[in-house]
């Protein structure tokens, strides 16, 4: 079966009057129907930019330099070649998005009713009454107990968890094929986070929606996703099923990240940490691997030549020279 969303060699560049540099480099992803796909990375790794690129929401100084973002619903569309008007029909209809901070994503001047119905008014031919009924049904399904009352409320009257539920209701009201969730639970408390993740899982299973989950929290990935791409400094360094990545990480960055989380909580052991800081885009190396300066296994080739994504095992890729038998000095 062909995948629902495919990113082929996508690169994103930044331009200003004075300088320009590459931020995201050659990203390849495939998200199947009904799949829950995670992108995990630290701040500045480019995970949010990737999702914004899919929605065609990049700011003016950012542009997709090369590559194609292909969405296959009933027909095949190359999203980054669509006109603004065509893209408007994709957003909300085929792909919906939930953001981290529900207070800034909801419009404070309009009632919840208006904001949910707005989506339907644009995408569906329905009578006012039908739209209202649909909105109430949707609010009920996201676990809001008195939807009629909430419909007349403004966003500031709701708590963080409630706002995120409303966001989910808005996103799923048109039954999109793909739901992009950009750090949907980062601003919430753990007990509320558990509620929201549970709800997202149930609802997307019910409607057969695919999820693209963007997060920095490996725990959230493990809870919700089937496959995961680990991003570092604008590149996907490792990609596989969640189980493979957690139990058998191949890339030194993923290994370090998991090690630093897994030693957490054990006081007898010194906490493992990756030395150095996450580089900013202007510090990215022209040549070689972008992780080389922090990598404990780096050798000469890592600084001179960029590693390709090596196939490891049957279903795992890792962008590291260690997998190349000729290059690896340890083998």
């Amino acid at each position: 079966m062909e995948s629902l969303l495919e990113l082929k060699d996508v690169s994103i560049d930044f331009q200003s009057k004075r300088k320009s540099f590459n931020i995201i480099k050659n990203i390849n992803l495939k998200i199947d129907r009904k799949m829950k796909y995670g992108i995990v990375g630290e701040s500045g790794s480019g995970k949010s930019l990737t999702s914004l690129a899919v929605m065609n929401l990049l700011s003016d100084n950012l542009s997709i330099g090369q590559g194609e973002i292909i969405l296959r619903t009933d027909e095949e569309k190359v999203l980054n070649h669509l006109s603004k008007k065509e893209m408007r029909n994709v957003r909300g209809e085929d792909i919906a998005m939930i953001f981290q901070e529900p207070m800034t994503a909801l419009d404070p001047l309009y009632t919840i009713e208006y904001q949910i119905i707005e989506v339907l008014r644009y995408h569906r031919k329905m009578s006012k009454k039908e739209m209202r009924e649909k909105a109430i049904a949707m609010l009920t399904s996201v676990g809001i107990s008195r939807p009629e009352k909430i419909m007349n409320d403004y966003p500031h009257q709701l708590s963080g968890g409630m706002r995120q539920r409303v966001m989910i209701a808005m996103a799923l009201v048109t039954e999109p094929k793909l739901l992009i969730a950009d750090e949907p639970t980062t601003a919430l408390d753990v007990t509320i986070q558990a509620q929201i993740l549970d709800l997202m899982n149930d609802l997307t299973d019910e409607h057969g929606t695919s999820i693209l989950m963007i997060t920095h929290d490996l725990g959230v990935i493990l809870e919700t996703c089937d496959r995961v791409a680990v991003m570092y400094a604008g590149q996907v360094v490792e990609e596989s099923t969640v189980k493979n990545v957690f139990d058998n990480p191949q890339h030194p960055y993923t290994q370090g990240l998991l090690k630093s989380i897994k030693t957490l909580g054990d006081r007898s052991e010194k906490l493992y940490s990756i030395p150095g800081n996450v580089p900013t885009p202007d510090e990215y190396q022209e040549l070689g691997c972008r992780f080389a300066t922090r990598c404990p296994f780096a050798f000469e080739k890592c600084f001179n030549e960029e590693p390709p994504a090596f196939q490891v095992g049957s279903d795992q890729t890792s962008k590291c020279w260690l997998h190349d038998e000729e290059a690896n000095p340890n083998e």
Partner: peptide, 25 residues
């Protein structure tokens, strides 16, 4: 108990039994 059970766990083998609290603070 609920707070601790809500921490996303980091092991692929065991699925944690979770207490999901209703409502907000």
């Amino acid at each position: 108990q609920a707070l601790l059970s809500a921490i996303p766990n980091l092991s692929t083998s065991e699925k944690k039994e979770r207490i999901i609290l209703q409502g907000d603070v």
